[in-house]
Amino acid sequence: MKVLVCVKQTFDTEAKIELKDGKIADAGINLIINPYDEVAVEGAIQLKEKGIAKEIVIVAAGSDKAMDAIRTALAMGADRGILVQQDTAADEFARAVALAEAIKAENPNIILAGHVAADDGSSQVPTRVAEILGLPHVNVITAVEIAGDKATCTSEADGGTQVTEVSLPAVISSQVSWNEPRYPSMKGIMAAKKKPVATAAAAAAENKVKILEFSLPPAKAAGIKLEDEPEVCATKLAEWMKNTVKVEVK
């Protein structure tokens, strides 16, 4: 069984984001594999360790910098990679078209991905990929069992869990609680250098979304300091919460 994992390279979640000329100033910012995709990679490796998956292929669409994300996944234990070279300004539609084209050529049994990217948070790509490929899609899974050509997925649902049986091939996107991704080992890092990574041109697709502007969240307002008798402070605090913070009391 071939498992393909889509990964995206994102800003380090610990990085301080700054804007320059209305765009995100990415120079010098540490880039990492999207933490949600990292969970999908770990899920694939566990399927291989159980003897279910025979090969794990990593696919990323983006600039040459995305090679680092692929190498990280290979260092964790994936077998080979494909870098689909694409402008980083590609939107979710164009990104999904590019990934779907590469996936089609690989004909995998399972396509895994994180359910959302830590940078834009759009949660669209796995669903779009499934739609383009005409495959079923199960989202935010926290567990998966494979038996023959069927996958039984446990997903988060409002107030509980949902168990879905789906025939393969299918697109399955993971929630972070599925597993705890392993750290690449020294041995894995060195082995990853020798694992094959192919490059491919992205299929042509026009963006459907135009980004007009980036802005940072408004700076957090200073708090207040109340210095008085406790009961006076409590009254003032309640008034401040009601009138300034607009806390609704029911």
Binding site: Y183, P184, M186, I189, M190, K193
Partner: peptide
């Protein structure tokens, strides 16, 4: 035959995360 300068970054970054 084993190492390039950029390998240090990968090793350092994993160690940092741990």
């Amino acid at each position: 035959d084993y190492y390039g300068a950029d390998d240090f970054d990968a090793i350092c970054d994993v160690n940092y995360k741990i």
